[in-house]
């Protein structure tokens, strides 16, 4: 058994080391794969706050991923066509400036998460799963039927957005942005898990009656967690769209919501690095098995089955044992 902290450090070292090596060796595609792992890992870190810490099985987190994606797509589209988003009552122009795009992605995702959470948290269990799925489908079909922004075909952004001091078109530099974003997401997730808020959230997952009895409102705690969760996944969506320089309704699809859950289960539910390991494994499988067969997801299914049956703590749990209580 490896201590979880060492294991986490090893994962970070690999995620940083492999693209650096690829940069030196002149293999930009490997850097792109690592960037994808970092970004999808970040989306999973967001979901893990709702699902792992708060026990809210959201099958609609693609909503926030897609909102982040479209925040980038819409703003950059207006910037590249030199048309303002709106003129009256006040003039809003598009932008290619990443920090501004991220801010919009995070704020809009958070507001939508507040609305979806407030409605969905009235239910529990399987109904919560279904209502979040329903919201996901609404956003998906809305995006398909919105011709102004490409409808089903999506939006292409010709040049990657800008970040001061960096040339974002150089793969290793864009990777650096994604890696820092992931690191900040992980730090935030780690702090939240141990904080007063995290203690109440974990208790709300286990027993909401207990939380009420000490005079705290479990629904309020869960709703705030859902908002934070959605905001982080939204940021990941903006980065993902920038990685591909393309955004399409598939970012809202429930397959993506499902994949985010798969990352977490593969890596270990509620474990800090679970989503990162899960995303890494998923993308490696996609890359290597996808080359062998169109039906590579069959193997993912088999692995998922194995994890659920024999390694409940996911890969992190299998390598480092049961989570220790932090006190």
């Amino acid at each position: 058994m490896i201590r979880e902290t060492y294991l986490n450090a090893l994962i970070m070292a690999l995620l940083l080391g492999i693209p650096l090596w690829a940069h030196v060796a002149g293999q930009p595609f490997t850097i792109t794969l690592a960037t994808k792992v970092a970004i999808l890992g970040l989306a999973g870190v967001g979901l893990n706050i709702a699902l792992g810490l708060g026990g809210m099985v959201s099958l609609g987190h693609a909503v926030f991923f897609g909102i982040g994606g479209y925040a980038m797509g819409i703003l950059a589209h207006h910037a590249q066509t030199y048309t303002p988003l709106m003129e009256a009552p006040l003039l809003i122009e598009g932008t290619k400036f990443m920090p501004a795009i991220w801010l919009v992605a995070v704020v809009v995702s958070a507001v939508v998460a507040l609305a979806i959470g407030a409605l969905s948290l009235r239910t529990g269990g399987v109904y919560f799963i279904m209502i979040t799925l329903a919201f996901g489908q609404m956003f998906y079909y809305f995006a398909i039927s919105w011709p102004a922004y490409g409808g089903e075909d999506g939006l292409s952004i010709y040049v990657r957005n800008e970040f001061p001091g960096l040339n974002t078109l150089v793969p290793i530099q864009f990777f650096a942005i994604a890696f820092v974003a992931l690191s900040l997401g992980l730090i935030l997730s780690h702090l939240i898990a141990r904080s007063r808020f995290g203690l109440a959230l974990g208790a709300a997952r286990q027993n909401s009656e207990r939380v009420q009895t000490v005079g705290l409102d479990p629904m309020r705690v869960k709703l705030v967690a859902f908002v934070i969760s959605g905001a982080i996944t939204g940021l990941a969506g903006a980065l993902f769209a920038d990685l591909n320089r393309f955004v399409a309704p598939t970012m809202f699809s429930w397959h993506l919501s499902g994949e985010l859950i798969i990352f977490i289960i593969l890596g270990g539910i509620g474990r800090l690095f679970g989503p990162v390991v899960g995303a890494g494994l998923f993308i490696l499988l996609e890359h290597f098995l996808g080359g062998l067969s169109e039906y590579w997801l069959i193997y993912v299914g088999a692995i998922l089955l194995g994890v659920v049956l024999f390694a409940r703590g996911g890969l992190i749990g299998a390598l480092s044992g049961r989570e220790v209580a932090h006190d």
């Binding site: 702090l191 939240i192 904080s195 007063r196 808020f197 995290g198 203690l199 705690v221």
Partner: peptide, 8 residues
């Protein structure tokens, strides 16, 4: 309860 940074 809305404190997110320091360990409880």
């Amino acid at each position: 309860v809305m404190r997110f940074l320091l360990p409880a």
